[in-house]
Structure formats: structure tokens, C-alpha cells
């Protein structure tokens, strides 16, 4: 919500198309996942990101391939926005060995060494110390790379959140903390769990540069992330962005959503990041409605191909059950 002065997103037509395209990829992928879940193709927990797409897509614009990323169990969007192949992500949802984690992780544990994508962490707050350590490694090597930790506002109640913020600030590590405040920690509303509901203020108390942005506005998120990453690369220490956002779907597929009003959900849906940005881009003359339609077709085809890839995938033989516990050649 501060004015962008540095490293502003440069909104060319191509960039506007890219932002919309990436958000739509996540949305369509996940809508398909929900459908596949009801068909029992995808099992276990499935946490949809729908509604929050602007956060992952906006932040990723500011990153380079050398930067590391730690995400949560609601990470399909981050993985796709980071550039992981959609087919491999879908195969992971199926548990097939062609999946991004060879099927061993599933929906909550998408990893990718090439993309420096360090999961997929399903312990709330558990990824934050890892991000601090990745930042420490970059600092000690003076690599110039940064690390981004994505987490929900629920993590702010965990001790690991506070330990991580303190360490990162104390050691001035190049870590970008991105809090996706969607107002509910599973089913517990922010007002019931935090004495200080303005999460960014907690970071500020650790002397970390911190701000809150409209997480439904992909351009605002990108602008904040670019400012933050610029500051990190300048060696200014960690940065904290609270993205105010909303999850349109249930926490997981088992959630009857007894804890929030339908009217509230409908109200937030009016701020859908994809529709808002699309409408704005048309009004601004950056995109033509035909282009938006074309993006829709393109994404539909990509999702269909991803499903075909996952369907054609294979099950890992049970004989391999104990592999990947220890590094090959080492006894387990």
C-alpha cells in the first residue's frame, strides 16, 4: 500500500498477458484437481489455492532462477508459478512416479531441485527455519541469491515464526517472508487466534522492513515483491510482506466450512484476482477480450495434457518401497 518507486513492474502488454496467464493456469489446474478429487483420482488432503493466485504469481515475477523458495501444503500455485511442469505436478497429485517428487510426496509435498523449490511443507511454520537456513547459506557464500518463504497467517502463532524472524533479522539474511493472510487458520478466524491481527507489525517488531499489500491485486503484490527483493539483494536484511487475501474454497476437501458465512465468501469473490486484473487490463487497453479468451483455451489445453500425462503415468513398484530414505550407497 506504499507507493512503488523502485523496481516497479513494467506493465507491457506481454507482461500483463503473462500475469493473467499464470493466474489462470493455477485456477484451471486446481478446478480440475477438485473434480479429480471427487473421482478419487487424487486422494489424501487437497488444499486449493483458488482466490490467492495473485500472491504466488506476483511474488514469482521478482525472482530469478538462482533464488530459493519454501512453500506450504497449499503450494500447487507456487509450484506452477515457479515454472514446474504442470504434467509433473499433476502426476504428483496422482501419486505416479512421473510426478515432481516421484509420487512420494503428493499434493502437500511438491519439490523441484532444478527450480530450487524446497517444498511443500505441511507443518505450519515448519518451513520458515528452512528458509532462514537457505538464506544463511546464500549470505555465507555471498551468492547474491535470495530465499522466499510463503506461509499463512496461522503460522504467525507458531514459535518457529518468531524464532525465524528473529534469526533472519539478527543475521541480516536475504529472506523474503511472504505471509498470505487469508483470514482463517484452517477454520479459526484471525480475530480468534491473534492478539495483534496486523501480522506485518510482528515482523516490524523484529526490526524487519514490513508492509501489508492487497493480495488480490497481482500488480500490487509484484510491486511489493520487487521492492523487497531489490532490498534483499542490496544486503539490507530480510523483508516481510503481508498479503491480504482470501481462500474461496474450503480449507481442504474435508471441510464443511461451518466457521464462515457464505455471504462473506461471496463478498470476497467479487475481488477475484483474475477477473479484477482481466477487467482492468482490458480497460487499460493492455489486453483485448479475445486475448483473454485465447488464454483460457491455452490453459484448458495445458490442463488436459497434464491430466493425460498423469493418467498415463505409472505406479512405482512396491519393491522400491524403501528407496530415497538415505542417499544411495548409504545403509538405512
Amino acid at each position: 500500500m506504499t507507493g512503488a518507486t523502485m523496481d516497479k513492474p513494467h506493465l507491457t502488454r506481454a507482461h500483463a498477458r503473462e500475469l493473467l496467464h499464470q493466474m489462470q493456469r493455477i485456477r484451471s489446474f486446481e478446478e480440475k484437481c477438485a473434480e479429480l478429487y471427487t473421482q478419487e483420482k487424487i486422494r489424501g488432503f487437497l488444499h486449493l489455492y483458488i482466490g490467492q493466485e495473485a500472491v504466488a504469481v506476483g511474488v514469482m515475477q521478482a525472482l530469478e532462477p538462482r533464488d530459493g523458495i519454501v512453500a506450504t501444503y497449499r503450494e500447487h500455485g507456487h509450484a506452477l508459478a515457479r515454472g514446474l511442469d504442470m504434467g509433473r505436478v499433476m502426476a504428483e497429485m496422482y501419486g505416479k512416479q512421473e510426478g515432481s517428487s516421484r509420487g512420494r510426496g503428493g499434493s502437500m509435498h511438491i519439490f523441484d531441485a532444478a527450480g530450487r523449490f524446497y517444498g511443500g511443507n505441511a507443518i505450519v511454520g515448519g518451513g520458515l527455519p528452512i528458509a532462514v537456513g537457505l538464506g544463511l547459506a546464500e549470505r555465507m557464500r555471498a551468492s547474491g541469491a535470495v530465499c522466499v518463504a510463503f506461509f499463512g497467517e496461522g503460522a504467525a502463532a507458531e514459535g518457529e515464526f518468531h524464532e525465524s524472524l528473529n534469526l533472519a533479522a539478527l543475521w541480516r539474511l536475504p529472506v523474503l517472508f511472504v505471509c498470505e493472510n487469508n483470514l482463517y487458520a484452517m477454520g479459526t478466524a484471525l480475530r480468534l487466534s491473534e492478539s495483534e491481527p496486523e501480522i506485518w507489525r510482528k515482523a516490524a517488531s523484529y526490526r524487519i522492513a514490513a508492509e501489508a499489500v492487497n493480495g488480490m491485486d497481482v500488480v500490487a503484490v509484484e510491486a511489493a515483491a520487487r521492492r523487497a527483493v531489490h532490498s534483499l539483494r542490496e544486503g539490507e536484511g530480510p523483508f516481510f510482506i503481508e498479503c491480504r487475501t482470501y481462500r474461496f474454497r474450503a480449507h481442504s476437501m474435508f471441510d464443511a466450512q461451518l466457521y464462515r458465512q457464505k455471504a462473506e465468501v461471496e463478498e470476497w469473490k467479487k475481488r477475484c484476482p483474475i477477473r479484477m486484473f482481466g477487467d482492468w487490463a482490458i480497460a487499460a487497453g493492455l489486453l483485448h477480450p479475445d486475448e483473454i479468451e485465447a488464454i483460457g483455451h491455452e490453459v484448458e489445453a495445458e490442463v488436459a495434457a497434464a491430466v493425460r500425462f498423469a493418467e498415463a503415468g505409472t505406479w512405482e513398484p512396491v519393491a522400491d518401497l524403501r528407496r530415497d530414505v538415505m542417499t544411495p550407497g548409504e545403509a538405512s
Partner: peptide, 12 residues
């Protein structure tokens, strides 16, 4: 925090 940071640094 610091054991996790050790794990992260090892990953890094």
C-alpha cells in the same frame, strides 16, 4: 529455529 536453519543451510 537454528536446527531448522542448519537443515536449510545444508539444503543450500
Amino acid at each position: 529455529g537454528f536446527v531448522g536453519a542448519g537443515i536449510g543451510a545444508a539444503l543450500g
